[in-house]
Deep mutational scan, measured.
Amino acid sequence: MSIQHFRVALIPFFAAFCLPVFAHPETLVKVKDAEDQLGARVGYIELDLNSGKILESFRPEERFPMMSTFKVLLCGAVLSRVDAGQEQLGRRIHYSQNDLVEYSPVTEKHLTDGMTVRELCSAAITMSDNTAANLLLTTIGGPKELTAFLHNMGDHVTRLDRWEPELNEAIPNDERDTTMPAAMATTLRKLLTGELLTLASRQQLIDWMEADKVAGPLLRSALPAGWFIADKSGAGERGSRGIIAALGPDGKPSRIVVIYTTGSQATMDERNRQIAEIGASLIKHW
């Protein structure tokens, strides 16, 4: 067993022997301040990774656009098919120029040779490549099948209805392509620590998230040296922004954090800054 596999296998073990965790309302004060600064709703939840206990939450059962955070769930569904012998990570998928959609920095470079399922998941999570996500959605049967996968996990809230990039439209009061912070946090925890996926697939999923290259201005910008984070960000229309993450000190994750916002007129930089400040408060009061 590799060191990384050992780390993920012992996530519940280490967490069980940690000192009790206590909620700190100071972080919620910052979440509410972010709402004021952005002029928009902000949803927040913080779960203990081992027990699933909610440590703090704000608007945990209000719907927010998922945006690209759905790509972690998508690759979880792909990995479940791999575990069941219905898919192979090494299978190569070929596609054409007509398949390319807006923001496809990886797939646009491989029109000639195609990409493997493993490479597509890596591109979808680490670079948020939209064509990679659409190609992977095709392998599982489309958005409705991802929703069905989530329902089978016990998540009857999260739903995907459309493809990239239309799913980022974020129309107010439109339930399409949305989740709730509580539902997303619980589902992410199941994917990373539950028995739904094999140990190898859980490790692969967290490795992809740990290698995320496009979430630097968010929670990662607030992390002290030595902290662990595996995350996936999302951005959408109407001032929408979000991030889902597993993080913790001492090089291992111990909490799940989900943050979503929508309806702001603020710039992307300002949305990023507010999420980073929430992260800084979380870490300060850990």
Rank of each mutant, 00 (worst) to 15 (best):
P25Y: 10
K30H: 15
V31L: 10
V31D: 05
V31R: 11
A34C: 01
A34W: 13
D36C: 15
L38K: 00
A40G: 10
A40E: 08
R41C: 15
G43M: 02
Y44W: 06
Y44D: 00
Y44I: 01
I45N: 00
L47W: 03
L47Q: 13
D48I: 09
L49F: 07
L49G: 07
E56H: 12
S57I: 01
F58S: 00
P60W: 05
P60I: 12
E62N: 01
E62D: 00
R63Q: 08
P65H: 04
M66T: 01
M66S: 02
T69E: 06
T69Y: 00
T69C: 03
F70W: 04
F70K: 14
K71I: 06
V72F: 14
L73S: 08
L73V: 15
V78F: 14
V78N: 12
V78R: 06
V82E: 15
V82R: 14
D83S: 11
A84D: 14
G85C: 15
Q86K: 06
E87D: 12
Q88E: 09
Q88S: 08
L89K: 08
L89V: 02
G90N: 06
G90H: 03
R91C: 14
H94V: 06
Y95R: 02
N98L: 00
D99R: 07
L100S: 02
E102G: 04
Y103L: 07
P105C: 12
P105K: 15
V106K: 11
V106E: 15
L111R: 10
G114P: 02
T116L: 08
V117W: 11
R118M: 05
R118G: 05
C121R: 01
C121P: 09
C121W: 01
A123K: 15
A124S: 10
I125S: 00
T126F: 00
S128F: 06
N130A: 03
A132V: 10
A132M: 02
A132S: 08
A133H: 09
N134G: 07
N134Y: 09
N134P: 04
L136K: 14
L136V: 13
L137A: 15
T139I: 10
T139P: 06
I140E: 13
G141Y: 15
G141H: 11
G142N: 04
G142C: 02
P143F: 01
K144G: 10
K144L: 11
K144W: 13
E145H: 05
T147V: 03
F149A: 09
F149L: 09
H151I: 08
N152P: 11
M153I: 13
H156N: 09
H156M: 07
V157R: 08
T158K: 01
R159W: 01
L160M: 07
L160V: 06
L160K: 03
D161Y: 08
R162L: 11
R162C: 12
W163Y: 12
W163V: 11
P165S: 02
E166M: 11
E166K: 13
A170N: 11
I171M: 03
I171T: 06
P172M: 14
N173P: 08
D174V: 03
D174S: 04
E175D: 13
R176L: 07
T178V: 10
T178F: 15
T179H: 01
T179Q: 02
M180N: 12
P181K: 01
P181N: 06
P181M: 01
M184K: 08
A185I: 06
A185C: 01
T186E: 07
T187F: 07
T187N: 15
K190M: 02
T193M: 04
G194Q: 08
G194C: 11
L197A: 03
L197Q: 08
A200N: 14
A200R: 13
S201G: 10
S201L: 12
R202H: 10
R202F: 03
Q203W: 02
Q204H: 03
L205E: 03
L205T: 04
L205C: 05
I206W: 11
A211Q: 06
A211W: 07
D212H: 12
A215K: 02
G216L: 05
L219M: 09
L219H: 08
R220Y: 02
S221P: 07
L223R: 09
P224M: 01
A225L: 05
A225N: 13
F228A: 04
A230H: 12
D231M: 08
S233P: 07
G234T: 09
G239M: 11
S240Y: 03
I243K: 01
I244M: 14
A245G: 10
L247K: 11
L247T: 13
G248Y: 04
G251M: 14
K252T: 08
K252H: 08
P253D: 03
S254G: 05
R255Q: 05
R255E: 07
I256Y: 03
I256M: 04
V257M: 10
V258M: 04
Y260H: 02
T261Q: 10
T262D: 04
S264W: 07
A266V: 06
T267W: 09
M268D: 07
M268S: 03
D269P: 04
D269Q: 13
Q274M: 14
I275H: 13
I278G: 14
I278P: 12
G279R: 08
A280S: 11
A280N: 15
S281D: 10
L282E: 05
I283Q: 10
K284H: 06
K284E: 09
H285L: 03
H285A: 03
